[in-house]
């Protein structure tokens, strides 16, 4: 069977690239969007992990065994879902740049 010729459309010197290719894993500085920041009351928090599950940027780490609840503000967009969903109302949204 005669095969169809596979002729490169580009000049042979150029590399044939099939399209824009994503090869760098990046994160944008979404923390700069924040107008209000979530501040957790460590006494009220029962380490249930509900906020961590719902956090869109996965900024919250909850470890029940280590009795740990941490918020990483690098990427936190300040959406407030964590404060809204906390069953113990242990997270408060405080204005960014104001007094804590």
């Amino acid at each position: 069977m005669e095969m169809q010729q596979n002729t490169p459309t580009n000049t042979p010197k150029k590399r044939r690239v099939l399209g824009p290719c994503s090869h760098v894993l990046v994160a944008y500085n979404t923390g700069s969007w924040r107008m209000v920041r979530p501040v957790a009351d460590q006494e009220k928090c029962v380490r249930c992990g509900i906020c961590a599950g719902y956090c869109p940027v996965a900024a919250i780490t909850v470890d029940k065994k280590a009795d740990l609840m941490e918020i990483d503000y690098t990427y936190c967009k300040g959406c407030g879902i964590c404060a809204n969903e906390c069953p113990k109302e242990a997270i408060a949204m405080k204005p960014e740049g104001g007094e804590n």
Binding site: H23, L25, V26, A27, W33, P56, V57, A58, A59, I81
Partner: peptide, 30 residues
């Protein structure tokens, strides 16, 4: 080959330009 400039959370980058309060990130991550 993928060059990592940041540490991903799970298999998804932590800082994505989806709107504040958008949960698509959560769908992708899960």
């Amino acid at each position: 080959m993928l060059t990592y400039t940041i540490q991903p959370k799970g298999l998804v980058s932590p800082g994505i330009n989806t709107c504040q309060g958008c949960m698509i990130d959560v769908i992708f991550r899960n």
